[in-house]
Design a protein around this nucleic acid. Structure first.
Length: 412
DNA sequence: CGTCCACTGGAATCAAGGGTCT
DNA sequence: AGACCCTTGATTCCAGTGGACG
């Protein structure tokens, strides 16, 4: 038998994680420590659905990683246990981060209810009215309560206004035998303020706020998961408190804490170490940050990459204390498009792309008035040298290797 | 104090690409 | 085949604006 190229790597690698699933963020544990209170409140509100009467709509808010999604899915699972054949109520979960347009939402909801394949709603092609009518008809026949969870609900609002909420909340006025109640989930505390008053009062009949986890609570959560995922003595003593402390410091995010632990263990595995130490946590910490940004940039559409590149080029050339502004970015942007033989977008669109990059946290762009010199955005980079290098290495920029910003841009 | 710059921010509109329905 | 529908990305239009300068 020949030597496998995987041989050395396999020899070196020790399996430290006994059960990988448990450390994934999608895993729903059987119990959610320190969220008993929230579970109880929500369960109390939606219990009527088991008796075919409509629960109030709920709006759940809380920062990322405070267990909102976990709690709601957990409750969904338990609800299904109480009513296995969905005689009285159905629980429907839609993640609006993934489907964020009205048609998509209705499509998603309907096809979780409609079981027979012939009556399914096509994923595009119909008018919204038709989809709406079909759903209404279908669920009214079922004579039951529908609990629709809209996770990351602020995403829809952001892109499409509140038309869809109007659709959804007025369904009850048309429905005779069934009712629908909505659970909105968001990490944007100001989400409510963006809604029209009518929708606001409907959607927010009940409100539940998830507080961030405290350090001890995070520690507890991690410990419970670690017991399931690892054999004893794999994780060194200080590691879990350390992970908890780090995550508690920045906003009590349990997802981050879990990621930290998982990545630490993965790094240890790859190194061939037999335990997970605080040193691993430290390297995990920077790895996670780096990976996240790199991933965002890698998947950027080409035009956004070019805009980002022109921001970078502007900063390379810029003189001390002189701001890079939208106009500068646009002139360089056009030159780059020329060299790359890409068609260039108009000013407005590029300005919008700049805003998007800002929202992704890759750049800082805040509006500032320069008096006589107008009012525009002052643009700064928010990524470090390594990541800039990564951007430069992107294959679409190949023809750019010799290029330097030569033209004097406006403010220089 | 008023002017006036270089945009911003929002809305309306268009074009292309995914479809269904008759 | 032709009429419609929805979404996305881009363009066009336009009123509005913070503050340095005169």
């Amino acid at each position: 038998m020949g030597e496998s190229i995987f041989g050395p790597s396999k020899d070196k690698r020790k399996v430290l994680i006994k059960n990988r699933n448990i450390l994934q963020t999608t895993y729903i544990p059987d119990q959610l420590p320190h969220r008993e209170n929230e579970v109880r409140i929500i369960v109390e509100i939606i219990t009527p659905s088991l008796y075919k009467s409509k629960p109030s709509n709920i709006l759940i808010t809380g920062k990322t990683g405070t267990g909102k999604t976990a709690v709601i899915n957990y409750i969904g699972k338990e609800l299904k246990k109480e009513d296995p054949d969905e005689e009285n109520c159905s629980f429907i979960y839609v993640n609006c981060e993934i489907v964020d347009n009205p048609y998509g939402i209705l499509f998603n909801i309907s096809n979780q209810i409609i079981k027979d394949h012939n009556n399914r709603i096509p994923f595009t092609g119909w008018s919204l009215d038709k989809v709406y009518d079909t759903i209404i008809k279908y669920i009214d026949e079922k004579e039951k309560i529908l609990i629709v969870v809209l996770d990351e609900i602020d995403r829809i609002q952001q892109k499409n206004g509140d038309d869809i909420f109007y659709f959804l909340t007025t369904m009850n006025e048309v429905l005779k035998n069934s009712k629908i109640s909505i659970i909105g989930v968001t990490n944007n505390a100001k989400f409510m303020e963006l809604l029209s008053p009518k929708i606001k009062s409907r959607l927010g009949e009940e409100k539940v706020v998830f507080p961030p986890y405290q350090r001890e609570q995070l520690q507890d959560i991690l410990k419970k998961r670690a017991e399931l995922a690892f054999d004893p003595d794999i994780i060194e003593d200080g590691v879990i408190p350390y992970c908890a402390a780090i995550s508690a410091q920045d906003s009590g995010d349990a997802r981050k804490a879990l990621d930290l632990l998982r990545v630490s263990a993965e790094i240890a595995e790859r190194n061939g170490d037999s335990t997970v130490t605080e040193a691993h946590v430290n390297s995990a910490r920077s790895r996670i940050e780096l990976d996240a940004v790199v991933e965002v940039i890698r998947t950027l559409p080409p035009q956004s990459k070019i805009v980002l590149m022109s921001v970078i080029k502007n900063h390379e050339k810029k003189e001390k204390d002189i701001a890079v502004i939208t106009g500068d970015v646009y002139t360089v942007y056009k030159e780059i498009c020329n060299i790359l033989e890409y068609s260039s977008l108009k000013e407005k669109r590029v300005a919008d792309l700049i805003s998007e990059l800002d929202m992704l946290g890759i750049i800082h762009a805040r509006v500032k008035s320069f008096g006589r010199n107008g009012r525009t955005r002052e643009i700064e980079l928010n990524i470090n040298k390594d990541i800039i290098d990564f951007v430069m290495k992107d294959e679409i920029f190949e023809p750019l290797s010799k290029y330097k910003v030569t033209k004097q841009t406006k403010l220089l």
